[in-house]
């Protein structure tokens, strides 16, 4: 019958209309600034720099190797190396970035910097609310803005972060074992030379 399908459709929309007032779960949207949907684990927006411990300066994983700066397709990363060195998590003396800037307005969120970083120092953040009244200075993220703790990384990408942490722990253990072996070898060498001498 002509019009029967229309009546069926009208019934469906009426059910939605009334249901949206009665059942909160029906609503597919949230009221954004007050209420936010938690970011998905796979969400990626802009890069940030990971640091360990409590001090963003001392714990920064970045060694200023500039690989990401060279690989970045839109050339949005600017790095200045430091003159002096500081020990990294394995106790090795490394340089660190004196300046590390990312121009958020240029970044295209390609994640290539994350792929190429050998030190697990740069990762993708889920933060997206960068709106500012100053479109040049306000969108240029410096080292202090970019540095975020490893706990933050563990919170936004737990699976990936635990894998990274395990790898770094393994690295440290291997390095420690190596150092120990070396030390022992040196000790043995010294003992040998003592006995020899």
């Amino acid at each position: 019958m002509l019009g029967a399908g229309l009546a069926k459709g009208m019934r469906e929309t009426a059910r939605n209309f009334i249901g949206s007032y009665l059942e909160y779960e029906r609503l597919t949207t949230v009221e954004y600034p007050e209420e936010k949907i938690p970011a998905k684990e796979t969400a990626r927006q802009f890069p940030f720099l990971v640091y360990d411990g409590d001090d963003p300066e001392a714990g920064l994983r970045c060694v200023g190797c500039q690989i990401c700066e060279k690989e970045c397709p839109p050339q949005c990363i600017y790095i200045e190396k430091s003159k002096e060195k500081k020990p990294d998590h394995m106790g090795k003396m490394q340089l660190y970035p004196h300046t590390f800037d990312i121009d958020i307005s240029v970044c295209m969120s390609c994640q290539i910097c994350v792929e190429v970083c050998p030190f697990e120092a740069i990762k993708m953040d889920t933060e997206f609310e960068y709106s500012t009244t100053d479109r040049f200075g306000g969108l240029l993220a410096d080292k202090h803005m970019l540095a975020k703790s490893n706990e933050h990384y563990n919170r936004i990408h737990p699976t990936e972060a635990s894998a990274v942490d395990a790898k770094r722990k393994n690295d440290r253990e291997v390095a420690a074992a190596k150092a120990k072996a070396k030390e022992e070898a040196a000790k043995a060498e010294a003992a040998k030379s003592k006995t020899d001498g």
Binding site: S20, R26, T29
Partner: peptide, 13 residues
């Protein structure tokens, strides 16, 4: 607002 509710949204508020 009505169209929003029909589509299970809140509509302008």
């Amino acid at each position: 607002k009505g169209l929003g509710r029909i589509q299970n949204r809140r509509g302008p508020n």
